[in-house]
Design a protein around this nucleic acid. Structure first.
Lengths: 102, 102
DNA sequence: GCGATATACATCGTATCACGAGGTATAACC
DNA sequence: GGTTATACCTCGTGATACGATGTATATCGC
């Protein structure tokens, strides 16, 4: 997929992957793999950004002697997903324009 | 609309606006306005990039004493629009995932 | 005639962002 | 005991959109 198009989906996609059940970096990558492949460096950048934007909250735990940071979607993060649905409508409008011309 | 999401559409949208009839900067902005607003600085950056990528060809003309640069979509540009249709399918897959989780 | 607006182009600097490369450390498996 | 899986992190780079700013002519209203 085009790099630019990807970028528009990444944040919301990560939020969606966490929303129903708190999750952590390594798991998110595996869960998203069938839908959208993303590297660790990309994901951790996104998680950090979403945390700074207060759309995610973190809870650090220890699991089998390894650090595991569970992320939880805040109401603000839920709102972001909702906004995406509205944006999608606009996106469909642009898509229709492109198709009309072809 | 989200800035990132926009970015994925800009190039193809500009190509689509020119494809059926050669056009020039100022006109493209006006034509796209109902669908997608973009500033001059943004458009000229895009036109330049698409020209360098050989998806557009330029023909400079004089009109009423003013310079006017007509852009024409090359076969390579047409292909770009076609590729977008494929990308859209992938995009729909991601969209479905986001909706499923909500 | 003159100021405002429309037409039409261009460039520079900034902020944002994805991602590859590279790093650390433990657990599990063969 | 070596390889793979799990799990985190950081730095540098290249790409990009966009606001601000600049130049120049034509047209329209008064």
């Amino acid at each position: 997929m085009d790099a630019q198009l990807r970028r528009g989906l990444l944040d919301v996609c990560v939020l969606a992957a966490i929303k129903n059940e708190d999750s952590y970096g390594y798991k998110i990558i595996k869960d998203l793999k069938p839908v959208l492949e993303l590297s660790e460096s990309t994901l951790y950048t996104i998680l950090k950004r979403l945390e700074e934007a207060k759309m995610l909250e973190v809870r650090s735990t220890e699991f089998d002697g390894r650090l595991r940071k569970y992320y939880h979607v805040t109401p603000s993060g839920v709102k972001r997903i909702g906004d995406f649905k509205e944006e999608w409508k606009e996106l469909m409008g642009v898509y229709s324009f492109i198709m009309e011309e072809n």
